[in-house]
């Protein structure tokens, strides 16, 4: 259990360190702001697919939304 916690701490801190060096300035988001770069760029397609897979498989969902985009406030 302790080892487990330690691992999580290591992963969490390395993720945070990595994140702090990632990112761009607001005016460098031209490509990220493109509609095709949205995480769910085609929500209608996603919804149709999810409905099919929901009726064929035992797993569903898991996806979430938010973030990215143009950061235009």
């Amino acid at each position: 259990m302790r080892k487990h916690m330690l691992w999580i701490a290591v992963i969490a801190s390395s993720t945070l360190t990595a994140c702090s060096s990632m990112g761009v300035d607001p005016w460098q988001r031209q490509n990220l702001a493109k509609p095709e770069m949205a995480l769910d760029s085609s929500p209608l397609n996603t919804a149709l697919d999810d409905h099919i897979y929901f009726s064929k498989e035992a797993s569903s969902g898991g996806r979430s939304f938010g973030g990215g985009g143009c950061g235009c406030n």
Binding site: C19, M22, L32, G62, G68
Partner: peptide, 20 residues
């Protein structure tokens, strides 16, 4: 319940990680 984080990596890439 879902929690997640989205991170912009550079001018051309981003990732998302979520738990539900």
């Amino acid at each position: 319940i879902v929690v997640g984080v989205t991170q912009v990596i550079d001018q051309n890439s981003l990732f998302q990680l979520s738990y539900s």
